[in-house]
Nucleic acid binder design. Sequence first.
DNA 1: CCTTGACCTTGACATGATGGGAAGGTGCAT
DNA 2: ATGCACCTTCCCATCATGTCAAGGTCAAGG
Lengths: 146, 146
Amino acid sequence: MNIGEAAAASGVTAKMIRHYESIGLIQEAGRTGAGYRTYGPKDLATLSFIRRSRDLGFSIAQIRDLLALWQDRSRASADVKRIAGGHIEELTAKMQQLQEMVMTLQHLSSHCHGDDRPDCPILERLATGVGDEDCCEPAAAMKGRS
Amino acid sequence: MNIGEAAAASGVTAKMIRHYESIGLIQEAGRTGAGYRTYGPKDLATLSFIRRSRDLGFSIAQIRDLLALWQDRSRASADVKRIAGGHIEELTAKMQQLQEMVMTLQHLSSHCHGDDRPDCPILERLATGVGDEDCCEPAAAMKGRS
DNA sequence: CCTTGACCTTGACATGATGGGAAGGTGCAT
DNA sequence: ATGCACCTTCCCATCATGTCAAGGTCAAGG
């Protein structure tokens, strides 16, 4: 199986397959006499594993660990669960950050006329930092930002 | 005002101030005889504007537009609102992606023993793609991923 | 046999926003 | 005058991915 076929079958681009090989995430592929990389079913399974992990937002470092656990028959499921749990926390934290931004923006936007006049609470807030963040709702947004 | 003081006062690192200057986001700062950059109150206001915009997740390109509007007294608030609205949509889309990931991960994690045994639905899902995603809840998660 | 087109190879460079560090000059206080 | 804190420019790194270029290979058809 060529790299192109492996890419199509796994959903990982050829470019990324080479990249993953170069950083040691996957083993070096076999080669034909002409230097073409060759892939078997086991390689395909690994590539698909990686793609699904990426789809769930795992970093390459986390995938490295997950792959190691996957290939370790004496693994403890607790180790896998711990990685997943940490990842859930990261994702949740990011979501909360985004949520705060969205809340603030929606609040500011709702008070912007959105017409031809230059008056704009969004710009005022960006310029002065003292838009009316706490005037109407006791929103917890933007209270403890970094 | 030195770059260090401007950085401390605005919350933008000296590194980033130089970077913003190099990409033309801000004007070139004045210089002392020795070549040190100097900043005045107006520069400080601009830097603070940029930092607040970044805190709200705006990209550099968006900030470029926001700055132009800010400095344009004949702006229409509709233009500002449109930028903010687009940004809200971007953020919301990202949040939904993260939400889907979290839902899937939590579902898988909840079925993982998390003990010494190697059995793990998380790894199974990553390996085969056919974990029990729709067995219990009709979760809309991971139905139309890219 | 030769061409053509699709594929492969490596390598370099870009993204976006930021951090880190080196090598060398400046300002100020002791 | 010595030292320390700050400034300058320039290069490299991150993370995951894409793009492009120059060249080699394979298979099919003329």
